[in-house]
Design a protein around this nucleic acid. Sequence first.
DNA 1: CAAGTCAGTTGGAAAATCCAACTCACTCGA
DNA 2: TCGAGTGAGTTGGATTTTCCAACTGACTTG
Lengths: 160, 160
Amino acid sequence: MNRPTDKAVDAPRACFIAAGLDVLGERWALLALREMSLGVHRFDQIARNTGASRDILVGRLRTLESQGVIERVQYSERPPRYEYHLTTSGAEVAPILISLAAWSSTWMRDETPRASYRHSCGADLKPVVSCAECGEEFTPGSLMLGPLVSVAGTDPASDQ
Amino acid sequence: MNRPTDKAVDAPRACFIAAGLDVLGERWALLALREMSLGVHRFDQIARNTGASRDILVGRLRTLESQGVIERVQYSERPPRYEYHLTTSGAEVAPILISLAAWSSTWMRDETPRASYRHSCGADLKPVVSCAECGEEFTPGSLMLGPLVSVAGTDPASDQ
DNA sequence: CAAGTCAGTTGGAAAATCCAACTCACTCGA
DNA sequence: TCGAGTGAGTTGGATTTTCCAACTGACTTG
């Protein structure tokens, strides 16, 4: 089904979920983005609000910046000081944070008090995820593997 | 603004995003759930498809099980063998995976070929996240902090 | 009966994270 | 002008996680 010299038949599944996690899945990355989404842009405050150690946080912010998810905006010349702001890419992480918050507030209810989130209309967070094409709601299981995608199309390959 | 004896003014923000990440944010956890969402339920195959080392994967699966996200289903008596299946809670992680895949396929396009995802209607993955209450689409920035939530209500507290 | 499958375990090396303290360049109040 | 404070890091060493390859035990299959 593949080439004659079938290399490793069992390479990990290269998919966009895995690729997204390479950037957003490292510890503290999503919490840092949460802070910026909430309007917190400065290093000390992001460190405090996330609980990340400062050295690790520096690394995360640099990675996110190099991936184009956030950008540094200078707010003081001397000494040079920067704020961290979401780029368009970073702002579009919001649906992930929203889904996560909604899942968590449904399934992680225990005794500890936690900040909840809501939509700007004032309602409690109850996101509905639907398909932009057909308009139907995504149900668990309606996620299917599609074709391989790169700059150009490549030949399909299916294993599971 | 708070109590007289203000304890640590700078505790990390306890919110549902952070709580969700405690369970889903560890390395390999979401990829393991991805596999189960795609119908892969057995240890060896999950290990292969995610790329996780077997020892770490065992730990993750145990944690997810103890958190009620997945469950082990025995499929062989002797030797005892189990499959890993999503619980209702686990199935509802789908919107997170969907948002992640969509974000990634928009912003992580590089030369490497990757499996894409689509809705079961056949369309490319373009999820729309909207508020169940008002029906309006969530725009970046429409996520607001709500009140503290626990088993009972607690007094509000705002810092940022 | 030898080889293969499946779901793990094990031990040691490597990498990531944590933590507290320290730096540097300032600003602010007395 | 001095001392304290702020903001954004950096540093070194301890701790925790993860990686990796090999191994086990209980089977099944040829």
